[in-house]
Amino acid sequence: MKCDVNIITGRTIDQGANIDSKLSSDYFNACARCEIGVEDLKTLGLSEGSHVKVSTRFGSVVVSLALCDGNPEGVAFIPLGPWANTVVNPDTHGCGMPGFKGILGSLEPTDEKPLDLKALMSLYR
């Protein structure tokens, strides 16, 4: 089932610890993920580790689901990185800063797998 969310992106310690080894599986595991609260997990009918397609009007990306007890219902957190940036709002509101937080979007179950960094970046070349 589809679930509407407000997406925020940000740093995590796992993302930071692997920021200089972006081609590693550790970086992939740290960033190709979406953290949601237990209520949204129930709405989606999925469990942790399931793949989910995140869609906004700026793009879509497939990532793994993770449970975060601290997230209120309707808030999805994606660590900053190439996966998050597929769905963020590029509008800088006239001050240079794109919309990395507060992006309205949706989550839905998918059979697709997340792309690794090389595959994701090859889409730009």
């Binding site: 920021i19 972006k22 793009g59 990185g81 970046m121 730009y124 070349r125």
Partner: peptide, 16 residues
């Protein structure tokens, strides 16, 4: 720095 990892996809497309 690594803008390809930290810019929105629309910017990265034009950067690339």
């Amino acid at each position: 720095s690594d803008p390809a990892a930290h810019f929105p996809n629309a910017s990265v497309r034009n950067l690339a």
